[in-house]
Each structure stands twice: as structure tokens, then as C-alpha cells.
Amino acid sequence: MNIYVLLKRTFDTEEKITISGGKINEDGAEFIINPYDEYAVEEAIQVRDANGGEVTVISVGTEEAEKQLRTALAMGADKAVLINTEDDVENGDQFTTAKILAEYLKDKEVDLILGGNVAIDGGSGQVGPRVAELLNIPYVTTITKLEIDGTTVTVTRDVEGDSEIIETSLPLLVTAQQGLNEPRYPSLPGIMKAKKKPLAELELDDLNLEEDDVEAKTKTIEIYLPPKKEAGKVLSGDLNDQVKELVHLLHTEAKVV
């Protein structure tokens, strides 16, 4: 099977976030594989191990995404592709990313594409379904289970807590939700092997794309931190009095009950 994983290098949002020069400050920040894409990598490896084939991880970004791609290779993916946009595109959005990914994938005879359901930094959840539409293949989002039998695929989809059991077929794109699997940690031999696995680097030119073809349709005009919350009121005194005070405050000060 030809299995592809869409992998985004993201800012670790457990980190403290600061803004400088109107941008999120990335100096010294930790970057990780988007957690939902880790589920996608793990599932791809399991599908390959059960059905044969090859897992290719792809990322659109800068050279720095090499590190996250190497981690995916160390987990067990076979090949990696970095589409480096650094020199070509200044302002991109989800339209940009999806277009580039689809352009790369369109002649690859894909059987299965896996991605995360959302990136924890950008948070739109657009890229997966956009890519599927551009490739004209079916997709299922926020999946928690994937079973493949020949070309028939049965997927469990999380819908705001309810589950849908969906039947569909390959070729297919799915996006991972928490609960799909437990991603493995790269093993030491895995890390050694990953160093020798192929990691190809492409630019827009290699995909016959011009900057104009991928020009963003939206633009960020401002980034800001939420207003600093005043330190909350931690009540004190006798517990009964605290509870009375809380109810009083919610009623008269916060006016929410």
C-alpha cells in the first residue's frame, strides 16, 4: 500500500507564549510533531505492518521541519519529503498548504493518506479535508478506529462524543482523533536507522507551482495575547462562609446566576 502521512511541525503549546514584533515569539521555543499527527504516523506504521507497503511522511515548511520528519522516520516511517517553501512563499494560509500537498500527491497513486484532525497552533482543521477534495478522494475526519479489508474500509468517527461507524473505500484520507492509538516512542535502533532513510527536499519549482498559484486567500492582521486575567479570588475562612461568599459573588459581582 502507498501510505502518506501529512505532518506539521508545531509550536509546543505547553510552552509559555509571548509576542514580539506582532508575531508569536519562537526564539528558544520547543517544536514538536503536532500531537494528532503522531497518531497518524503510528496508525500508518500499523497499517503498513499489517498490509505491506510503504509509509511516506510529508511536511510543508522550512528546513527546520527536518527534525520532526526524522523523528517520524525513527518511529518507523520509510521515507520523508520536505517541501521547503522558505524562499518562495511569504504569506501562506490553509489554501496554500493544501494546494502544495495536493500537487505533490496527485500523481502518487495513493491508497491511504493520514493526517491530524487539527494542528494545535493554527487550529483550523482545514488541511486534511481540503487535500482530499483537491485529490477528489473521500475522507473521514476525527477517527478513533480504522479497519482495512482489501479496499473496504470501516472507520469509527468521533462526532462530538457520539461515534459513527462509517463504511468507505480506498483511496481514502482520514484525520486522527485522540484515542486512535498510543503512538510509540522512537527506539534507539530506530533513531540510528532513521539517519539513513531517504529524506527528499523539494521546492515549489519541482511541483511546477508558481508563487501566484498558492497565494493566500486570507491574511492575519493582528496577533495578541488575551488580556491578562487578574489573579482570581481564592476565598478563605470557614468553608460554609466561603461557599456563601462564592454564591453571593457569582450572583452580585459576576452576575452569572
Binding site: 509550536f11 503549546t13 507564549i17 509576542i19 508569536i24 494545535i120 497552533d121 493554527g122 487550529g123 486570507t218 491574511k219 492575519t220 492582521i221 493582528e222 496577533i223 495578541y224 495575547l225 488575551p226
Partner: peptide, 11 residues
């Protein structure tokens, strides 16, 4: 954005 730790204005 960033898991609700920041906001952006977009057009």
C-alpha cells in the same frame, strides 16, 4: 490560536 493562548484577527 495556540490552544487559546493567543488570538489573531484575520481578514
Amino acid at each position: 490560536i495556540y490552544s487559546s493562548k493567543a488570538f489573531e484577527k484575520k481578514i
